[in-house]
C-alpha cells in the first residue's frame, strides 16, 4: 500500500507544475491546460484522502470537480476565442489594454 503522503506529494507536485505552467506559458490554450492540471492535482488529493479516510465523499466530490472543470474549460475556450478575434494573438502578455 502506498502511503498517503506519497499521493499528497505527487498531487502537490502536479499542482505546482500546473501553477508554473499558468505563470510562464505564453499561449492561452496551454495556460488553460495548466489550470486543468491544477484541478486534476486537487482531484488526486481528494481521491487519496477518500481512500485513506475510507469515505466515499472524496470520490463523489471528484465528479463534481470534473463537471465544474469541464464547464470552466468551455467558458475558458469561448473567452479565448473572443479575445483572439480582437487581437489575433493568444499571448496573454500582449493583452494590456487594461492596466494601472
Amino acid at each position: 500500500m502506498v502511503p498517503l503522503d506519497y499521493y499528497l506529494i505527487l498531487s502537490a507536485i502536479i499542482f505546482a507544475i500546473g501553477v508554473v505552467g499558468v505563470l510562464i506559458r505564453r499561449n492561452l490554450i496551454i495556460v488553460l491546460m495548466s489550470i486543468e492540471l491544477m484541478l486534476n492535482a486537487v482531484n488526486l488529493t481528494f481521491i487519496a484522502f477518500a481512500n485513506s479516510l475510507g469515505s466515499m465523499d472524496g470520490q463523489v466530490i471528484v465528479f463534481f470537480v470534473m463537471a465544474v472543470a469541464a464547464a470552466e474549460a468551455v467558458i475558458g475556450l469561448a473567452i479565448v476565442i473572443s479575445v483572439f478575434r480582437h487581437r489575433q494573438s493568444l499571448d496573454p502578455q500582449e493583452m494590456q489594454l487594461l492596466k494601472w
Partner: peptide, 22 residues
C-alpha cells in the same frame, strides 16, 4: 476591453479556484 477583462478574470479566477479547491 471586455474580452480582455473576461480573459483576465477567467484566468485568475480559475487559478484561484484551484487553490481554493486544494
Amino acid at each position: 476591453r471586455s474580452s480582455e477583462a473576461a480573459m483576465k478574470y477567467f484566468l485568475m479566477g480559475a487559478f484561484a479556484t484551484g487553490f481554493l479547491l486544494y
